[in-house]
Structures are given as C-alpha cells and as structure tokens.
Design a protein around this nucleic acid. Structure first.
Lengths: 109, 109
DNA sequence: AAAGATTACTCTATCTGTCAAAGTAATAAT
DNA sequence: ATTATTACTTTGACAGATAGAGTAATCTTT
C-alpha cells in the first residue's frame, strides 16, 4: 500500500481521467481505482467525495442523479469541456513532476 | 513552476538525497534544489526548516553547527544509517507511485 | 419475514504538510 | 553608514486527506 500523502495532488487527475472515459458515480470510481492498481492504492470514501466537491466547484465536472439499482441512489459525474482542458494541464504537469523527482532519485536504490 | 502541492510528500526524499551526497546546511540545500531544477521548483524556507525538524525527530538526520563564514551561523545536517534505510524505502515507493499514476495518465496528452 | 451484507452517499471534526510573514543576526559590498 | 546577501527560527493559517459516524436503499440468507 502506497502512502496517500504521496498520491496527494494527483487525485484530481486520477478521478478526472476515469470520468473522461465515461460518466461514473463515486462508488464505481473507488472500486475502479482499487481494481486497476491491484489494491496497491485505495481512495478513502471521505476523500473521494471531498474531491468531487472540489472539482464541481471548479466546474470541471457536473453531477446528475441516476438509477437506484442495487443500493443507494447513484450520483453520476460527467466531465465538462473546462475539465478536459484542466486534465490536459495536469498531464503536462505530471510529466514535469516526474522529471524533477527523478532528478533526485536517480542513481539510488 | 510546479505547484508545490504536487511535490508534497517527496520533500523528505529530495532533501535526504542531497544530504546523502554530503553534509549540507539549509540555505545550501534550497539553492541546490533551485539550481538542479532550473528554478522549476523552489522549496520555501519555512517548509525546508519544517522538514529538517521532522527528519530530526525521526532520527534520519543529525545536526551540528559549522562556521559562520559570510552570513549567519550554518547548521549542518548529516544522514544517519537509519536515514539511509529510510531513503532506500522512499526510492522504492517512488517507483511504485510512478507506476500507479502512469496507469491513469497513459494514453492522454 | 427478519437479519445481515452490500451498495451508495453525506457530514463533521481532526491531522499533517506546506507556507506567508515577520523576526533575529552576521558578513560583504557600496 | 546603508543596503544586500547569507542563514536560521517561530507563529499562525490554510488546504487536502481521513476517521468515524450516520442515512438509506437493495440484495442475500435463514
């Protein structure tokens, strides 16, 4: 398990990317993250919903209510065009960050 | 300039790496980070000294006073053997984190 | 039909890391 | 003398992450 402090700041990217693929609801996203990372990273529920609030406020995602199939009422999120531009920035930023950290980690093991 | 929020959690690694190379003092480290990253990342003073406190408490670095050549009294830090082991863990963690984030960023631009 | 498991979301209080701002103090340059 | 630079410290505030508790609907098991 990876410390979440180190993923901090990348949650926006991860969640936006998943919503870009298709509209998704919270619980689904949390499952998807666990699956794709083979449980090496799990987003905490409280964190996930905090991210949604932040992203909605920034107007990079929009919510709408879906079915109530098996369990609670699902709240779906879609990405806005502003969101697509934002994600694109985040991808560039990630490339930069990787370079910077690698600069200090290289030659070590 | 990279948002510092996204570097968060990697400061321990960066600083430990620089101290591993040789004993260093705060101001020197801050300059070194700016130089190596071509000013694309600058650690804030307050942050740097907060990191030192954290690392000392964890006993991964030790401090001693040096000269007073040109300016204030320098406080040098050296890495402990516990610190070397800790850094080694952080390097492994970085490899893991990179994989995880890349998983979500791949195919995008 | 009742009980428990699972799905799904919300809210509050707290913790940690980062940082702005302000301060102290010594030396070097003008 | 004054200003710039080097060097460290402290305080208070902020933002993101999270534990924990709560609400509610549906499915499974007995």
């Amino acid at each position: 398990m990876v410390r979440s402090d180190i993923i901090r700041g990348h949650l926006d990217s991860i969640i936006l990317r998943l919503i870009l693929e298709k509209d998704r609801y919270g619980y689904e996203i949390s499952q998807e993250i666990s699956n794709r990372t083979n449980n090496s990273f799990q987003i905490k529920e409280a964190t996930l919903y905090a991210v949604f609030q932040r992203l909605e406020k920034k107007e990079v995602i929009e919510a709408y209510y879906g079915d109530v199939s098996h369990g609670g009422k699902r709240k779906y999120y879609r990405i806005t065009s502003l969101g697509k531009a934002y994600l694109s920035e985040l991808v560039k930023e990630w490339a930069e960050v990787k370079e910077i950290i690698d600069l200090f980690m290289e030659g070590l093991e």
